[in-house]
């Protein structure tokens, strides 16, 4: 089994100082001063792939693991960490294009990588990432590859006959299914899937291994299928004002404040329930 895990590096938007959103004339949002993180759903995808490899190792059929991202050099540190975590390949498709709202371009680049270089038969990625919030890349990728896609996946385990045992949420319950690759698995909410931290030993053993960089234009020019038409153009961005009265209850002690909260507000509100 040859697994490709796709991830995106995004600014940690929860660290943006309240209401401080500067949008420039090209509709870019200034986020340069907050730290970058791996998109949370993609983080789960990476950890789930590692857990899968751990289990498959026990069954003596260890899969090949590649971590792939599209973007500029700010992803390099994360790629090195993934290398240390024993990903066999860590690849960055170098692109300076504004891909925030271009899931069809991301899907085309991923498909080109699979077809031309990776020859992977299982692709795992987060269902959505927190800048574009498009929630479309795995789906468009499945359409481009002509592969099935399972969404809202929460766990993947090895199964007999080079298959995968996949657990995923559907709208009215949970499915546990055995899948024959090739397939695309879009990770949803997956408990216990924070990415593990490499040990010093891991870093010494694998941390210095190279990160591969591929030029996006070259990849597309030499064998990529053109992106499916997207046809979705960003026209404007507005901030969402969520303020309510925000009355802060005063008091000397927690007990005093709680009493004030209860008698001035909560008692009446609870009576209305």
């Amino acid at each position: 089994m040859n697994i490709l895990v796709c991830f995106k590096v995004v600014p940690d938007l929860d660290l943006m100082p309240g209401g401080d959103w500067n949008v420039d004339s090209r509709l870019r949002v200034e986020t340069g001063y907050v730290k970058n993180i791996i998109n949370p759903y993609d983080e789960s995808a990476l950890e789930i792939a590692l857990q899968f490899a751990d289990k498959a190792d026990d069954d003596q059929c260890s899969p090949g693991l590649t971590a792939l991202t599209i973007g500029d050099s700010k992803a390099n540190l994360h790629l090195k960490t993934l290398r240390a975590l024993s990903f066999d390949r860590a690849v960055r498709i170098d692109s300076k294009e504004d891909l925030r709202f271009r899931p069809e371009t991301c899907a085309a680049l991923i498909s080109a990588y699979i077809n031309k270089i990776g020859k992977n038969n299982v692709v795992i990625m987060g269902r959505q990432s927190g800048v574009g919030d498009n929630a479309q890349t795995p789906l468009i990728c499945a359409e481009m590859m002509g592969w099935p896609c399972i969404t809202q996946v929460s766990s993947i385990e090895p199964a007999a006959g080079a298959c995968l045992r996949v657990t995923n949420l559907v709208d009215d319950g949970t499915c546990r299914q055995t899948i024959e690759p090739p397939c695309i698995l879009a990770i949803g909410n997956a408990p216990n899937s924070y990415l593990r931290v490499p040990t010093l030993k891991d870093i010494k053993a694998h941390g210095q291994k190279p990160v591969e960089v591929i030029d996006a234009a070259v990849l597309m020019a030499t064998g990529g299928q053109p992106a499916l038409p997207g046809g979705c153009e960003l026209l404007g961005i507005e901030a969402i004002d969520r303020r309510r009265s925000g009355i802060i209850i005063e008091g000397e002690t927690a007990a005093e404040k709680t009493q004030a909260l209860y008698y001035s507000y909560l008692k009446g509100w609870l009576a209305g329930i």
Partner: peptide, 10 residues
């Protein structure tokens, strides 16, 4: 968009 902090017009 932006994890629900902003809203986009497309």
């Amino acid at each position: 968009i932006y994890s629900n902090y902003l809203r986009g017009r497309f």
